[in-house]
Amino acid sequence: MRFHQSVIIVLLLLLGNIVTAQTNDSLINVGNHKLNFSILAGSGMPIIFESGGGNDGTVWKELIALVSQKIKAPLIAYDRAGFEKSGIDTTQINISKEVINLENALNQLNLDNRYFFVAHSLGGNYAMKFISNNPKKVKGAVFIDIVSPKFMDEKRALYTKNLFIDSLEQIKKESIGFYHLVLNYENTSEVMRNVASSIETPLTIIASGLTPFEGNDRTLFLSGLKQFSEQRKNRKYILVEKAEHYVFYDEPILVADEIVRLYNLVNSEN
């Protein structure tokens, strides 16, 4: 099975020039800076891919290529402020402002007024905030190894931020986006905890068996995701036991199929 999946990924990479040729990269002005969007054209409800902390939109390239073979929706990845090709307004950088800027950019793209999200890791925080701002517009989402509200409590958020404190100056030189992500980590986590319980959107939560954490922290991470998935009846939980944190690298077909399944389900209902 893994060999079969590897062959498909190799073929997709070989066909990368075709996929790239169909992708439109656009810098969208959201005020004092521009955000870079990579858009694979399609019709109907768009799928927005929200990257994890430290990643830009290119992390989704192979998965987008696979999903595009199964559905013809607009597939949109973007670089959050300060990452890759996107600019940043360092005077107004926090999760709430970034989500407003994303809303602004999507409105400018003149897309269908409904959205479907795919979010990885810390990207789940941003997706949840977007959903809480637009509960009637977001029809479904697939969350991949996101940080759950139970796991990322106030104490752990401070601990996580402090892991990077001694390296901040070097981080600032290498990635202004990641620098501000670290500075804002406690606020980003607090916002996620505040909005998580209000989300009624149908979700699939995909968890990796080999999370970035070990020992008891791994158990807590997974139990937090499982508990989050059980809070509403319209949520599905999938544990991929042999996958690491980037589940869509280890099991791309499984992830793509679940995106397509939930997308088709909510699209037919709305």
Rank of each mutant, 00 (worst) to 15 (best):
I100C: 09
S68N: 10
N24D: 13
I176Q: 14
I171A: 08
L262Q: 06
V59W: 00
L222D: 09
H120S: 11
N36F: 15
M1E: 12
D217R: 13
K172N: 01
T188C: 06
L106D: 05
L27I: 04
E251W: 05
E269G: 00
K136F: 01
A243C: 10
N17C: 11
V142K: 04
E214P: 08
N267C: 04
R2N: 12
G87R: 12
Y78E: 04
T160Y: 12
G44Q: 01
R114K: 15
V19I: 08
V138A: 10
S68C: 00
T201H: 06
D112Q: 06
H120T: 12
R235I: 07
K129D: 12
M1D: 11
I76L: 08
Y179L: 01
D25H: 13
L111H: 03
G16S: 11
I71P: 04
N110V: 02
N24S: 13
P202T: 08
I171P: 11
T20E: 08
Y246C: 08
V142G: 02
R235G: 04
N216Y: 11
M45I: 14
P212N: 09
V7G: 06
L12D: 04
I95Q: 08
K137S: 13
P212Y: 10
R114D: 05
V247D: 00
N24I: 07
Q69W: 04
N194K: 14
F151E: 12
N187F: 11
S223A: 09
E169N: 12
V182T: 02
I100Q: 15
L40I: 07
S189C: 13
G31S: 07
D250V: 03
Y115L: 14
D153V: 09
V260N: 02
N184V: 03
A105R: 03
R156C: 01
Y185C: 01
N187C: 00
G52M: 09
G54E: 06
G31F: 02
W60E: 01
G54D: 04
S208T: 03
T90L: 01
M192Q: 14
E62A: 06
R80K: 14
I100N: 15
M152G: 05
L168H: 09
I76W: 07
D25Y: 03
E251M: 05
I146T: 08
L220F: 06
S51R: 04
E214C: 01
K173Y: 00
A141N: 00
N216T: 13
G54C: 10
I165L: 13
T211N: 10
E258V: 14
A256W: 01
I199D: 03
A119F: 08
S6A: 14
P135K: 00
E251A: 15
V67F: 02
L183D: 10
V147Q: 05
A141G: 10
A141Y: 05
V30D: 04
